[in-house]
């Protein structure tokens, strides 16, 4: 119980805590987009709300229809949000009249499905590696078999994408996996394949970004060809360029995503609130990495603790008869 031990302890515990607080001492490297990353481009101004993508998604992923209580939609698939049974949804912003599309006083469509983040929170937070990011395609996929159902991914995802089937006895997480099961058959994402207007197209993220740049460079109203299906499919149609907002959703959000959105209505009206450029997964892993780097700090701390415990026990033992350490050892004390 000398001062030197106490100081040592203070230094040990203080050091551990300080290590956790000093910002960016040994921050983890920033993740970058894989070379062969594939993704989707959703251009809300081309979307007509036919929901063919939702139907195709359900058919390709063996998902059941979902009913809701809104009048007139109790008999067919009409989900109100993503869920354990809906992993892709077209939603509508309604700000006014039906004859003005893509204006704040009219209406606009938006899509919600997995964004396949470059530095995904769900991948970082999953305790059992059920969420994984493919190193080649960058597709974030989920393994039901590994999942323990803790729903950390549901809570952590800044886009609110992973969902859970709370009403099932043996529940599971559901999210878009970019139809990776179809890729083996040489096909691509079903939602892009069926989209009649090319509002959703599939392709390498690099190509998608070129297409975005091309569209944004054209003056609103210019008639131009829009690809359908996937980039380079040859299937195109001509339509005028919309008056895009100066923001590509997913370009920078939480370190970038592989699904990119264009819109003529500000994204915050489409329930896509501003997000920082830094991935929370990076912040969290850097913090944990600093505290537990190589388990050096915890082991040093443990050594100090055991040392102190031994000394204290001796001190306790001096009052008692033996070198007991436990709470009960000094029952004969005094």
């Amino acid at each position: 119980m000398g001062m030197d031990r106490r100081n040592f302890l203070k230094a040990a515990s203080g050091g551990t805590l300080a290590a956790s607080c000093v910002p960016s001492v040994q921050a983890r490297e920033t993740r970058t987009m894989p070379e062969g990353a594939v993704g989707l481009l959703y251009d809300g101004t081309l979307c007509i709300g036919c929901r063919a993508c939702m139907a195709a998604c359900k058919a390709e992923n063996d998902l059941p229809p979902e009913f809701n209580e809104i009048e007139g939609s109790a008999y067919w698939d009409a989900p109100l949000d993503l869920s354990g049974r809906t992993i892709n949804i077209i939603k509508a912003y309604v700000g006014g009249d039906s004859d003005r599309k893509d204006t704040l006083d009219g209406y606009a469509f938006t899509k919600l499905s997995c964004f396949h983040c470059v530095d995904a929170s769900c991948v970082s937070c999953c305790p059992v590696a059920a969420m994984t990011k493919d190193p080649v395609t960058g597709i974030v996929s989920h393994s039901k078999e590994a999942c323990i159902g803790c729903r950390y991914c549901v809570a952590a995802c800044p886009f609110g994408v992973p969902r859970f089937t709370y009403d099932e006895t043996f529940p599971h997480i559901a999210k878009c996996q970019l139809c990776r099961h179809r890729m083996a058959q040489g096909k691509f994402a079903a939602c892009a394949e069926v989209c009649p207007t090319g509002a959703t197209i599939y392709g390498p993220v690099k190509e998608l970004k070129k297409e975005i740049a091309r569209r944004r460079a054209l003056a609103p109203g210019t008639e131009t060809e829009f690809p359908r299906g996937h980039i380079g499919s040859g299937d195109t149609h001509i339509a005028p360029i919309a008056n895009y907002v100066d923001h590509v959703w997913g370009e920078k959000e939480i370190g970038g995503t592989q699904v990119l959105h264009l819109s003529a209505v500000p994204f915050d009206r489409l329930d896509k609130k501003p997000l920082p450029d830094v991935a929370p997964a990076n912040v969290s892993e850097s913090l944990q990495g600093r505290i537990y780097h190589g388990m050096i700090a915890p082991l040093a701390f443990l050594g100090a603790l055991v040392f102190a415990a031994k000394r204290s026990a001796k001190a306790l033992g001096e009052q008692g008869e033996a070198g007991g350490t436990d709470a009960g050892d000094d029952r004969k004390g005094e």
Binding site: C126, V128, R151, P171
Partner: peptide, 19 residues
């Protein structure tokens, strides 16, 4: 949700130390 898999946390094949 999937309590029967809880042991995955302690199983090296599944454990994900960043979490």
């Amino acid at each position: 949700g999937r309590y029967w898999n809880f042991w995955h946390v302690f199983w090296p094949r599944y454990a994900q130390a960043n979490s």
